[in-house]
């Protein structure tokens, strides 16, 4: 319960950054924070106390393993997040080349 709330605070910190910051780099970093919080939250939901990692070995039965379905799906999510970050960085670099600033209040003419 406390862990869930702390993780939710991390998500809200990212949301705060997206809403209030005027700097494109800070907004990209805030999106990253929100992604970390969401991934961590999903893994927290799948943890079973006293359980071990889901790899079969000698003397290990499936009953004492953590929930591995969120782990597989979050693995996908992390990789996609890297692609999103790369694309956002490319967009920010292009905007900087055109407008010479990262301040979103000064980037007004968003033509092609």
């Amino acid at each position: 319960m406390t862990v869930y709330l702390l993780c939710f605070i991390l998500l809200l910190v990212g949301l705060y950054g997206i809403i209030t910051k005027r700097d494109l780099i800070k907004i990209i970093l805030s999106l990253g924070i929100m992604g970390y919080a969401a991934n961590l939250m999903l893994i927290l939901f799948g943890y079973k106390s006293g359980a071990i990692y889901p790899i079969l070995e000698k003397g290990v039965t499936p009953e004492i393993m953590v929930d591995h379905l969120p782990q597989a799906l979050v693995l996908t999510s992390i990789v996609i997040e890297l692609g999103i970050t790369a694309m956002l960085v490319a967009l920010a670099v292009r905007l900087f080349e055109k407008y010479k600033t990262f301040d979103i209040t000064k980037i007004r003419r968003l033509l092609g």
């Binding site: 780099i25 990209i28 970093l29 990253g32 991934n39 893994i43 927290l44 799948g46 943890y47 359980a51 071990i52 990692y53 889901p54 790899i55 953590v66 782990q71 979050v74 693995l75 992390i78 990789v79 997040e81 890297l82 970050t85 790369a86 960085v89």
Partner: peptide
Amino acid sequence: FLQAPDLAIVQFLFEIFALIIL
């Protein structure tokens, strides 16, 4: 700590690549 070693490795690599890109 949450018993997800595969994810820990992938997250570590993601972090290094993201830092390099940024």
